[in-house]
Amino acid sequence: MITAERKPLEEIIEYIRPFQKILLIGCNECVTVCSAGGRKEVGVLSSLLQMSFLKQGKNLQIREHTLERQCDPEYVEELVSMVDGVDAILSMACGCGVQEICRRFKNKPVFPAVNTKFMGASERQGVWAERCQGCGNCLLGVTGGICPIARCSKQLMNGPCGGSTNGKCEISPDVDCAWQLIWDRLKALGMEDRYEEIIPAKDWRPGRAAGPRKIIREDLAE
C-alpha cells in the first residue's frame, strides 16, 4: 500500500487560513489502512482545525466526506455537488488522490493534508515499513524475495557493505541489513548459489529515470 502521515497541523492551518468554507476529503484505500487519511482521521482533523480557528475567533466551516478511492475519476465525480459551495478543498489522500482532485476541479484550490511516504507493508500494529520503490523491473526473483533497492540504505545490488553488523544496518540499529535478510532467506531455501550471481548495473529506465511513467493496456484502454 501507499503509506502516508498527516502533515503538522500548523502547516495545514497556513494552507487554509485565507478560506471560510472547506471540503475535507478522505480516502477509503491505503491512507485508511495506514490510519493517515480515512474517515476517522477526517473527523479528527476537522475537529482540530475548527478548534484552532475558533480560538482565533474564526468560525471555519468544514464539510467532511470520504471517497472510496480519490485516485479514481469515477469516485471523484461524487464530489461535484459538494465542491461549488466551498472555497477550497483539503485532501487526506496520497499525492495521487490530491492530483486527481486538482485535475477534476481546476478552479478550486486543493491542498494536501498528508505527506505521502512510501510503498510499504504493515510490520505490526501501528508500524509500516518500506518495501518497494517501483523500479519497474522487479528483482525479487533473484534476491530471495527481499528488495535491495527499497531496503538496503545504499541500494547495493551485490551483497552487503562493511556497515552490516549483527544483521543491522549502520544507519540505525532499527534497520535490518537487507543483504543479511537476503542471505538468510536464500540459505533457508537452499538457494545459496543465487547469491553468487552478479547483478549487472541496473537499467533504471523502467523506473523514474526516463521521466514520468504511464501504463497503457491496449486491451482495456478506451
Binding site: D203, W204, R205, G207, A209, A210
Partner: peptide, 13 residues
C-alpha cells in the same frame, strides 16, 4: 540534457 535523451539512457538522473 534530460537523461532520457542521453547516451546512457539506463542511468538514473
Amino acid at each position: 540534457e534530460n537523461m532520457a535523451c542521453s547516451d546512457h539512457r539506463d542511468a538514473p538522473p
